[in-house]
Design a protein around this nucleic acid. Structure first.
Lengths: 341, 341
DNA sequence: TAAAAAATTTAACGCGCGATAAGTTTGACC
DNA sequence: GGTCAAACTTATCGCGCGTTAAATTTTTTA
């Protein structure tokens, strides 16, 4: 008796209203009179009715779906960004779906391809960067309102919202210099993300401007096992002796690997007089508090990036195909002092 | 000229076949003659056509969708399980979608509710456990073929596939006893997962059977910030002096917090003669290799769990509503010896 | 209380595809 | 060359809803 309702027609009859009115109700509950709204809602509750999504989306010009695409969900940084964005999308009345390309450009394209057939209202995309298939990405961005997050690709999408890499590195370099000595820059030889390039460039510029000689160590290794790469790279580096007392890692995951290697070698890392090394990094990874020693790092403004990017996408969706000028927004970092330097 | 094709009718005309044949092709490309298959595929390529998912799913009795629901995607353990399962589902010809309840029972229910309207062929569910709304969960499992993963709930779903908690703890306890002394068990006072209970029970039973007195420390704290909880709990514990030389943590994330606290206190953890503490744990968290010292732990058989659970679900889907007896499968752990004990 | 405005009803079409039945063509085989 | 099954075509219905237009009712406003 409670589950005999299969479609809107029956729901309409059960609640004593016409089907177009019920349809209107689902489109916007406030568009019907309070009295009819209550009748409809009573029937919905009584029969546990939910409209058929597929029938809805087939006929609507625009769905309420949004895609969230990140390079690697197993990376806590992206997991956190994705979580925040997902929540905000729900609050804005959309149905977000999360996708991860797991560092694979081919999969990134496949995700976007299958996303296209979901006719999403919009997409929040944190692209792989260098590895991405730019032509396919560009084609996609032209067919679906897309906002780029975290990693920028020139001219692509409606807008870019991310973190200001220069702010990160300037603060960490400044801090290390002010409280000790100019740092060596420790990074991946072939980073899988454009942000790494900006960090390197900022490091060089900053060192130059302060009158120091930039010194960069690029460790080999591909893929997304950054800790492993940092670990091996640190061992290789330290095999040749300690190059400098201060080290700045391009990102926290490399630093985690570095600290692990340093620990194994019995090197003490920190700002105490007896310590052999000082280490700082960027990102404020969720585990940066729990490394040994805890990691001095520059923190993203997760909340600002996620709220701004969702807000931008929603605005873009609501005002239709209004092509404003593409805006790029970069939020500064917040230096977090811990025990590693 | 290339994008004038909107539906199957036009695609059929463009390729010179009838629409039912095209429909048949999409259902199973091998069900049409090779020559017509080529003609269709040529037209698809030429016009970049993709069938409308919503129209397809509206009419199919069963969709090809499967839901993957985990308690917390930001936890690397679940991120890894979800990734593996997602990949296997794709290979099996399904369209997986990932959902995370982020530790919130209310959200777990909402996910399942919205999942229901996607008419999924099946669901792979790693339930929250204690916190889950069992009645709603039960209702859901009756309406959608569901396979439980990682965390079992008696009688729920078609099957359960997870890890054998007893195997984990038996191995870690045995190892600690054999190479040193019986361990203290370090866990959360109110764990958010039934697996923790099984681990505790196994610890007690194992200690009893070996003739030792079980000793358990339950640290306060709620939520999913296990590292933080372990960190604070360790400090509290160590404030009262070192209770025992061997400590077994219920899971790696607690251990990561513990190691961080121990490091801050200048305690050396390991199996060397001079070390003050030995620490072991369970899960083989992706970062267990990079803690300081690296963590001795019991590893899940990720691959076995994920392949078996996907295979079970696919079988269940393909053989319709064949109600076999519910099976529970638990894979044993693999002890990973590192430097913490 | 009448007129205007808002809400609702009735009727009907379309979306893109699944599915089926009956007739027609194709290709393999002896 | 004839036979027959497999493959294909034509025709047609239905899915559950969006959407629209015109007619009707209800509520608000003057």
């Amino acid at each position: 008796m409670t589950n005999t309702i299969k479609n809107m027609d029956e729901l309409a009859k059960a609640s004593g209203v016409s089907r177009p009115t019920v349809s209107k109700y689902f489109h916007d509950p406030d568009s019907v009179r309070a009295s009819t709204r209550e009748r409809i809602e009573a029937a919905i509750r009584a029969h546990d009715y939910r409209p058929n999504i597929y029938a809805i989306n087939q006929n609507r010009k625009l769905t309420k779906n949004v895609g969230i695409v990140v390079p690697h969900l197993a990376d806590p940084f992206f997991a956190e960004i994705a979580r925040a964005i997902e929540q905000l999308c729900i609050e804005a009345g959309f149905s977000p779906t999360m996708y991860s390309s797991y560092g694979d450009a081919q999969q990134e394209i496949e995700i976007l391809d299958s996303l296209r057939s979901l006719k999403p209202a919009g997409v929040l995309l944190a692209p792989l960067g260098h590895d991405s298939d730019l032509k396919r990405l560009e084609k996609f961005c032209k067919s679906v309102p897309t906002v780029l997050v975290d990693s920028n690709i020139q001219g692509l999408g409606e807008a870019f919202i991310g973190s200001d890499n220069a702010s990160f590195v300037n603060q960490t370099v400044e801090y290390l210099v002010r409280t000790g000595e100019p740092p060596l820059f420790f990074e991946m030889e072939t980073p899988s993300n454009p942000n790494a390039d900006h960090r390197r460039e900022t490091y060089i510029a900053k060192m130059d401007s302060m009158g120091f000689e930039p010194e960069i160590v690029g460790v080999p290794g591909k893929g997304w096992n950054f800790e492993e790469i940092g670990y091996r790279g640190a061992h290789d580096l330290l095999d040749k002796g300690i190059p400098k007392r201060s080290i700045l890692c391009s990102n926290d995951r490399l630093a985690i690997g570095f600290l692990s290697a340093a620990y194994e070698r019995g090197l003490t890392v920190g700002r105490q007089p007896g310590d052999t090394l000082r280490l700082a990094s960027n990102d404020d990874h969720p585990y940066a508090r729990f490394t040994c020693p805890s990691l001095t790092t520059a923190a993203h403004d997760y909340e600002a990036v996620s709220t701004h990017s969702v807000r931008t996408l929603v605005e873009r969706i609501e005002q239709g195909s209004a092509l404003r000028t593409r805006q790029e927004t970069r939020y500064p970092a917040r230096l977090v002092l811990r025990n590693s330097s």
